[in-house]
Design a protein around this nucleic acid. Structure first.
Length: 119
DNA sequence: ATGGTGACGCACT
DNA sequence: AAGTGCGCCACCA
């Protein structure tokens, strides 16, 4: 019985770049795009949806670099309703407020009620 | 291949 | 509610 790969990603390490983009990064962006207007998801939520529970920090890392049109990055906030990061936090607050959220200096109020349940 | 980086999460204070 | 410290993880140079 051949040893099962310790982790799924082991198989992808040798894959070319184009292959990798079809993996985590791609799945993260796809998940973010599915967050409906007026709702939010946490970096951790996205990590789970992208198939890598616990990779919340990596998700943030990707969000910080990947700047793609049509992706509602502002709907991704930190755990517990904390705002998290953004290229311009003021803009993030404004966008969230524009979608009907009550936003304080550092948090989205009523977080659990506006949190996206997932697909 | 190896180490540094950061738009995190969570326990504590 | 808000700040601090430390662990985790995939990406990048």
């Amino acid at each position: 019985m051949p040893p099962a790969p310790k982790r799924e990603r082991d198989a992808g390490l040798a894959a070319p770049k184009r292959e990798r983009e079809g993996g985590f990064v791609r799945r993260v962006l796809t998940a973010v795009t599915r967050i409906p207007p007026g709702r939010v998801a946490t970096y951790g939520d996205i990590a789970v949806l992208a198939g890598r529970p616990g990779a919340a920090r990596a998700v943030g890392n990707i969000m910080a670099r990947a700047s793609r049109p049509g992706v509602p990055y502002h709907r991704v906030i930190a755990a517990g309703g904390a705002l998290g990061g953004y290229s311009n936090l003021g803009t993030k607050r404004a966008l969230l407020a524009a979608e009907g959220h009550r936003v304080t200096r550092t948090r989205v109020q009523r977080f659990e009620q506006v949190r996206w349940p997932g697909p």
